[in-house]
Structures are given as structure tokens and as C-alpha cells.
Nucleic acid binder design. Structure first.
Length: 189
DNA sequence: CTGTTGATCTGCT
DNA sequence: GCAGATCAACAGT
């Protein structure tokens, strides 16, 4: 499976968010492979009031201003890490895509052990849950997603435009009118 | 230095 | 459906 090239991330953040649906997120821990198909994303870009990087660069959000194709991880609500991919067209100052949900493919037993639950439905269907299942934390901040390593993204299935649902984003209080949350229709999930 | 807030999850009602 | 957990980053004093 081919790893997505850096040019994939050098486009408008909203476009990349849609294109990430159906791609495969791969996490390697020692020799254990964990992977899953990306089925839900949200786009955040510069000037967007709901985005961490809406105005000034700070210690936490500087990754969103850096090189595209890298991982941006942040900690919130005292309990949860969330995984983003940095992506923007080269005329924009910052932008990122929140990976909200994946469908587990490989290493499901390992994920269940990480999450200490039994219910498959709630294994990786939220940003914080997904990060916990894949053991993602600040150690993954800034990892290059375009190189084979402990965390990267590869080509997946082809997604038709009519299989993508756009809805308002979740858990924010500003700019809720932008339909920048994208869900992949999954007939068998 | 202090107070507030947040791209959430879980458990209980 | 709703409140509580829980803490780092941020902005203001």
C-alpha cells in the first residue's frame, strides 16, 4: 500500500479532509501493526474562529503553521489526546484536519487491550478514543506522516463523492455554520 | 501568578 | 439526556 505523498497535503484543508476519507491510518508499536480506515474527519483552517490556530501562533498550535503532512497532537479536557494531520494550500498560514473516527482493520485485540473495553462499536468512534486505542500522545507530535515509521497514512479505498456526508462540526461554539465535518457512508458499520 | 476554558468520554438517571 | 472528571495552555492581572 502506497504512503500518501506530501503533495497530497499541499491543497485546501477542506479538500484534503474529504480526500482522507477511506484512507488507511497505520500505527506501528515495536513490531505490532495497528491500522484502521478513516471514516470521519473535520477541517480547521486559518481565520476560522473555531480553530486553535485562528489567530496567533502559540506554543501549542505551532505545528499547524509548520510543514504539511505532519502529525499535530493536542491534549484537552484533562483526559484526552486528539490526532490531526497538518494540511493547507501554500497560500494559507495554517490548517489541520482532526481525525475523528476510524474503522479498525489490524490489531483490534491490541486496541481493545489499550481501551479496556469490550464494545466494538465504541472502540475508535471518537477523537479521544481513537488516540487511546492507538496509543497516541505528545510523543507523536510532529511525526512525519509521509514516511514509513511509527505513524503514517496510506492509500485506501476509492470514495465516491455521493458517499461523503457533510455536517456541522462537533464540540465547538463558533462558526458552526460551516459544514466542515465529513463522514464516510459505511454500509457495513 | 491566578482564573477560565476546552476540536471529549463515561457513567448514571 | 446530562453532569462530572481533570489538567494544560492561554490570556489577563
Amino acid at each position: 500500500m502506497d504512503i500518501l505523498p506530501r503533495t497530497f497535503y499541499e491543497r485546501d484543508t477542506v479538500l484534503v479532509a474529504q480526500d482522507l476519507l477511506g484512507k488507511i491510518l497505520v500505527r506501528k508499536i515495536n513490531n505490532q501493526i495497528l491500522s484502521g480506515m478513516i471514516i470521519e474527519t473535520e477541517a480547521y483552517k486559518f481565520g476560522d474562529p473555531a480553530c486553535h490556530a485562528c489567530k496567533n501562533i502559540t506554543e501549542r498550535n505551532k505545528g499547524l503553521f509548520g510543514e504539511v503532512g505532519r502529525a499535530y497532537v493536542y491534549f484537552t479536557y484533562g483526559n484526552h489526546y486528539c490526532l490531526n494531520a497538518v494540511a493547507r494550500d501554500l497560500n494559507t498560514r495554517s490548517g489541520g484536519i482532526l481525525i475523528r473516527a476510524i474503522k479498525p482493520i489490524e490489531g483490534i485485540e491490541f486496541m481493545i487491550a489499550n481501551r479496556r473495553i469490550q464494545n466494538l462499536k465504541t472502540l475508535t468512534n471518537g477523537p479521544g478514543k481513537l488516540a487511546q486505542a492507538l496509543q497516541i500522545n505528545n510523543a507523536q507530535y510532529g511525526i512525519d506522516l509521509t514516511k514509513e515509521g511509527e505513524l503514517y497514512i496510506t492509500e485506501g479505498i476509492k470514495v465516491k463523492p455521493e458517499d461523503i456526508i457533510a455536517t456541522p462540526r462537533i464540540g465547538i461554539t463558533k462558526a458552526t455554520e460551516n459544514l466542515w465535518r465529513f463522514i464516510l457512508k459505511m454500509p457495513d458499520y
